[in-house]
Design a protein around this nucleic acid. Structure first.
Lengths: 198, 198
DNA sequence: GGCTGAAGTATACATGCGTAGACATATTTC
DNA sequence: GAAATATGTCTACGCATGTATACTTCAGCC
């Protein structure tokens, strides 16, 4: 018999698609936790149970991998991606979802936050800007009425990002430990003001 | 005669205080531009006209240098540091100053943005949280009246940081190229809502 | 049932980082 | 003027990074 013990970690049969997916998952976690520069290829590869070279074999380069991770996390599983702007009270719904997703014990894997966490790198900032512009900004703008839609949508995204940064990245106690209902109420007021500037 | 030409760059007489200040200035620029991890000690030192070792000689380590830079930029020359919250229309004043200081051609040296740009590093995030908590949050909270002052102050900081991130770091076109008056009006509305939640 | 191409590994290289210790030079003080 | 000290430089170490080349091993097909 080969490798009699240690059956706890079956090395996974060779499967290109599964490996590719495993790398993407590991990369998403690593980028969210450490940012573009902070996450190393070896660390990402280890999380997927492969060697660092596999990452470049599948994705060409770290930069391409990052672009694909951001693309994927912005089109699925993101705060904005769902039809949250179609809610009857979009401001309140947005505030509630935002507060929930930024809890301290929640692993932050939002595409938005990954971009913010990586924005110190010029290459990562470029990718993030492009993806935000292509996905989130369009989604939010479409749900607005009246004048200055582009600016209002961008400000909504700015408020979301600022809240995420302060509550999760910086972990400012006043936000991280605050009563969630209070935060939802205050945030909803801000969002309402930008959604319906009456 | 020694080094007859090349008098263009006088090596500056040995002066501990001036050198220390030059390092701080260079470090502030470098951290603002590249974040904590992205800025190298050799780059910072070169900007101050000295060797990398001088940095550690004066500040002990990169981490200590960063802490001192953040401390300095938060207590002087920052958006919040001035008495802007004592303005008769603090929301509008805040919005106007924020929009002006985040212009594309302005070198971002705000203490806030330095922290945001460096927040992917755990050590830098710790330092930033402590400084924000000690300086900015207190300043803003003191200017508020009514209930939930801590949460409202934190949200004001969150909006400021989100705007800075989106307009300067990510350089989202919808914000970077927007008409400034429009931005000021919209932002002032948001700030007013948090300053005076009537 | 052996072979062929895909899937994965091993090793290495060039570079940059923060930091350390030994050394050189200018400034100040007696 | 000379000794003492503060100021600054040089060289180097250990480590980590992203990536390239050469090699090995498994999976599926005839």
């Amino acid at each position: 018999m080969k490798t009699p013990s240690k059956t706890a970690a079956p090395p996974r049969r060779r499967d290109a698609e599964a490996t590719r997916e495993a790398i993407l998952v590991s990369a998403r976690k690593a980028f969210a936790a450490s940012g573009y520069d902070g996450a190393g290829l070896r660390e990402i590869a280890a999380g997927a149970g492969v060697t660092a070279m596999m990452v470049n074999r599948y994705f060409g380069s770290k930069e391409h991998l990052f672009a694909e991770v951001v693309e994927q996390t912005m089109t699925q599983g993101s705060l904005i991606a769902g039809g949250i702007m179609d809610h009857p009270r979009p401001g309140h719904a947005l505030a509630e979802a935002l507060v929930k997703m930024t809890r301290a014990d929640v692993t932050p894997v939002d595409g938005f936050l990954i971009t913010l966490h990586s924005a110190s790198s010029a290459a990562a900032a470029d990718i993030g800007r492009e993806k935000i512009d292509a996905h989130h900004l369009k989604t939010v703008t479409r749900a607005l009425h009246g004048k200055r839609q582009a600016e209002r949508a961008a400000l909504i995204l700015a408020v979301i990002s600022g809240f995420q940064v302060m509550r999760q990245m910086i972990a400012l106690p006043a936000l991280a430990n605050a009563d969630e209902d209070v935060l939802v109420r205050l945030l909803a007021g801000v969002f309402d003001r930008l959604i319906d500037p009456a």
